[in-house]
Simulated scan of single mutants.
Amino acid sequence: YIYGCYNLNKDILINMKKRILVIGLTERMGGVETFIYNTTRFSNKGKYEYDFLVHGTDHAVFQNEINEFYGNGNHFYFIPSFKKKPLNAIKALLLFYKNNGNKYDFVHLETGAASELVYVFPFCLMNHIKLISHSHNGGGYSPIINSVFRPLLNLYSSTKLACSVEASNWLFGSKNINKVKIINNGIDTNRFQFNEKSRKRIRKQYQLDNDTFVIGHIGRFSEQKNHDFLIKIFSEVKRLRPNSKLLLLGVGELQSSIRKQVKLMNLDKDVIFCDLKSNTQDYYSAFDVFVMPSLYEGLPVVGIEAQSEGLPCFFSSNISNLIKITDNANIIPLTDNAKKWANKIVSVSNIINSRKNYAGIVSDKGFSIESTVKELEKIYGV
């Protein structure tokens, strides 16, 4: 009898869990992927459980870590890309929702493109699943396609979220701003705080002495991140401070062309391509400044992490003003040339001792991952 009651109560508790299907993870490391991983890892897994629908690949970043976090089997489903194989994608989606649609309370679509609706509609309606649409980018490559899908996305989203006003306007349109809730891109501030030992270790690894002025950037090699202009800025910095180095973390489709640009500008001894790194917190500690001249962003997670580490940061004015969380954030228009950027960058005084205080400031401003998860769980309900 007692064993039976235990099993019954256990089943009731399992059934009380909110099940959420997340669409937004890819095989690449990026800001959205990091956000999804962090919100999963800091969620209350006794009350909320996430599954992940991934398209266009057969593996996903953080797949092993998330399955290990839950410890109760596989949480990932893979389907073809709608863009590349539309018929195969439709068949896979029909089968997936037929077998799994009744499990979910919500589909959480985390994206920067309204066209991602094809992985949700009309399947949410057919299975009576509420759709949460969450915008993570302030621009994109296909504004026309985005505007075509926008009315449907607005119509069928029970909840609209965005990381910034710019991200909201891009995905939902400016006239819908009052219907959108802004959710901060929270980070693990305990992880991203300045560490002097890490600074010394990374700088030693790349043979950078104490006097070397290290500019850092973390981002995918894509048009959005504007590496071409970043290299030009660094070239001007070198004229002003010859002992400067630029560390680039990330991979992407434009990496080879940026390498060629660096070589043509005779900067190959001064620009260090670090590729992908899982210990980015150590690299922030090694940097002296962080530079991000993006063409567009929602609210970049790396910009928040850099400020949490107490770094002087230089962001393009195309990034949301919400990125100005601390007094270390500097906003520069992209209309300013590389020389103007360089002059402002070399003018900073980087006092190492003061960098330790910034993680607490970022947390107090509401950008801790704990605060973000609480906001999401209010939306999901208990």
Rank of each mutant, 00 (worst) to 15 (best):
E27F: 06
G71D: 10
L53D: 04
G56N: 10
K103E: 07
I66W: 06
N74T: 15
G24H: 01
G24K: 04
T39I: 15
P86T: 11
I66V: 14
G30Q: 00
L87P: 00
G46H: 12
K45V: 13
N102T: 14
L21N: 05
A114C: 06
A92G: 08
K45C: 02
E49V: 13
Y119C: 05
F123A: 08
F69M: 10
K130Q: 11
F62W: 11
G56W: 09
L53N: 03
I66K: 05
L95N: 15
I23H: 02
F106M: 06
F82H: 12
F106I: 03
L93W: 05
I23A: 02
K98M: 12
I23V: 09
L21C: 08
F62R: 02
E27W: 06
N100Q: 12
L93P: 02
C124V: 13
F96Q: 06
S81Q: 10
H75N: 14
E116D: 15
V22M: 03
Y50P: 04
P122C: 03
S115Y: 05
S43Y: 09
F42N: 11
N64F: 08
S115E: 14
K47C: 05
S43D: 05
N100K: 15
S81M: 10
L109T: 04
H75A: 11
K85H: 11
H128E: 06
L25G: 00
I66L: 08
E68D: 13
N99H: 11
F35M: 13
N88W: 06
R41D: 10
K98H: 11
Y37L: 01
F82S: 09
F78I: 05
P86V: 09
E110N: 13
S43L: 03
I23N: 03
L125W: 01
G101Q: 09
F96T: 08
K91E: 12
V61H: 07
V61I: 15
N72D: 15
V54M: 03
A89K: 06
F82P: 05
K47V: 07
A89Y: 10
N44A: 11
E68W: 01
L125D: 04
N74F: 03
F42C: 03
V61N: 02
Y48E: 00
D51Y: 14
N99Y: 07
T26K: 03
E65K: 14
D51K: 06
D105M: 07
E33G: 06
L131G: 04
K130F: 04
H75C: 13
V107K: 00
V107G: 03
E27T: 04
G46M: 05
V22A: 05
S81D: 07
A113T: 10
E116P: 01
Y97C: 07
L131Y: 12
Y37N: 11
G101N: 09
M126E: 05
F96L: 07
Y77M: 04
L25C: 00
V107Q: 01
A92M: 08
D105Y: 01
F82G: 01
F76W: 11
N44Y: 09
E65W: 00
A60N: 06
A92P: 07
H75V: 00
R28T: 14
A113K: 07
N100R: 13
L21T: 05
V118F: 05
K45G: 04
H59W: 14
D105L: 02
E68I: 08
L131K: 01
L87S: 15
L94T: 11
N88Q: 15
S43G: 02
K91D: 12
E110S: 11
V120M: 09
N72E: 14
E68R: 11
D51H: 14
L87C: 05
V120S: 04
